[in-house]
Design a protein around this nucleic acid. Sequence first.
DNA 1: CAGATTGTTAAGCGTCCACTTGACTGTTGC
DNA 2: GCAACAGTCAAGTGGACGCTTAACAATCTG
Lengths: 111, 111
Amino acid sequence: MSLDRVFHAVADPTRRAIVERLTRGPASVSDLARPLPMSLAAVVQHLQVLEGSGLVRSEKVGRVRTCRLDPAGLRAAEDWLHGRRTDWEDRLDRLGDVLADEPRSDEGAAP
Amino acid sequence: MSLDRVFHAVADPTRRAIVERLTRGPASVSDLARPLPMSLAAVVQHLQVLEGSGLVRSEKVGRVRTCRLDPAGLRAAEDWLHGRRTDWEDRLDRLGDVLADEPRSDEGAAP
DNA sequence: CAGATTGTTAAGCGTCCACTTGACTGTTGC
DNA sequence: GCAACAGTCAAGTGGACGCTTAACAATCTG
């Protein structure tokens, strides 16, 4: 479950469309391919990327493979982004506090 | 500010390292390059990708370019992932409710 | 069984990507 | 002025990516 693979998987608009489709419930490979402007083989390749990233699981029964979302990968990526963003915003807040306490630079630290 | 660009930017470990470094405060191009095992020119190219994605802003004063994080891009990507994940989890919850209300399949919808 | 459906696999093709080297521009400090 | 510094730009390279076609395997249906 590497962030490399998850972010790379989700960087492609076709793969994001597949993820969005799977949000509304499991689907077969053909179901996923039907609205997409490319060959079935191409969709299978996208699914391999998604499955390799851990975002999607699938099982084959008979001749149809059913794909469904696995939220763990989404959560890991989400957490990384959230952490970076909040770290940065918290830092800006603290910086704001310091500037508010000491508005003029020609004044000593302990007035 | 396209998700394509943001996710692609953050799919590379070098660029994620740069983002993490910028979390702790602004830095010059050379500062960012120092710990990285590649040429300055390569780092500049990574910064162009990050800047093109909206994750990083920079300004040049004198001969030094100072880079800082822009949380808006992080937030957009985070929101997309969060939306997909919660949509899916909410769906599973509702499915669980239905199964709990109607445990046996040979029973009518309105007992 | 014959034929249609569902998917898998491999090869090929053009493009994009990460990185390098080298030449070059503008800035700062002695 | 000149040397060191900070960064930029352009061209080239090897590999990964997205997609196609074509041949194939397995399963279901009449």
